[in-house]
Nucleic acid binder design. Sequence first.
DNA 1: TCGATATTTCGACATACTTCGAATTATACT
DNA 2: AGTATAATTCGAAGTATGTCGAAATATCGA
Lengths: 109, 109
Amino acid sequence: MSKYRSNTVEDFAEIFKALSNSHRLTIYRRLSSCCAPGSGCGSEADMRRCVGDLGRDLGIAPSTLSHHIKELRRVGLIRVERRGQRMECWIDPDVLDALTGFLSRSAVD
Amino acid sequence: MSKYRSNTVEDFAEIFKALSNSHRLTIYRRLSSCCAPGSGCGSEADMRRCVGDLGRDLGIAPSTLSHHIKELRRVGLIRVERRGQRMECWIDPDVLDALTGFLSRSAVD
DNA sequence: TCGATATTTCGACATACTTCGAATTATACT
DNA sequence: AGTATAATTCGAAGTATGTCGAAATATCGA
């Protein structure tokens, strides 16, 4: 039931670019230790983490953190939703699947 | 018998950066339609492609192509060896495995 | 309503990246 | 030796990225 479909090589290049910064990659991995909503491998609270938590101990300014979150969101790797004061983030598993599929699949071109 | 071992998040970020340019990603995918040497899924000739072939129809200057090949090589994604006038390239399957493993594995941190 | 907490937006700056053309190196062929 | 082909190195130019601080927005609690 993968609803995600990325079309071009450019799309995937953008996704890789989002993971090409060590701060963003760390953020993404911290999220990937949680589960996707609806995947039933943890409580709701375990699936999501707020922006502040994700950037803890990274040594970057809040504005920089926000910029990185925005970038991960832009390419579709993560989803974000407000919950009170916090912005809760979680991984879009479809995009991750598309990415690993893209890597292992042989090029047509 | 995976002899490749990447240590840090920074290493993986570098690998993703190498794939974050659509020209380099296209080059890499053209190579991944071949097989690794020793994997026995094709003749020797099928496993490798020279720099000029990999950059065909990409619309970039030879010097730019060379720069991209160098970058893919630097992070370990591909291997290069001279064969006469040509430089033959092929994929390092260990690094690709490490990459997909890294993506699916949960973060410890 | 006022202050605290969480996050974003904006503008600025330094650094890194992509690309090119010109010149250079390596190999093959005649 | 001389020429052609394949690829690299170098320097330059424009663009993109990562980062910050200051100011703004959103929500919660007293």
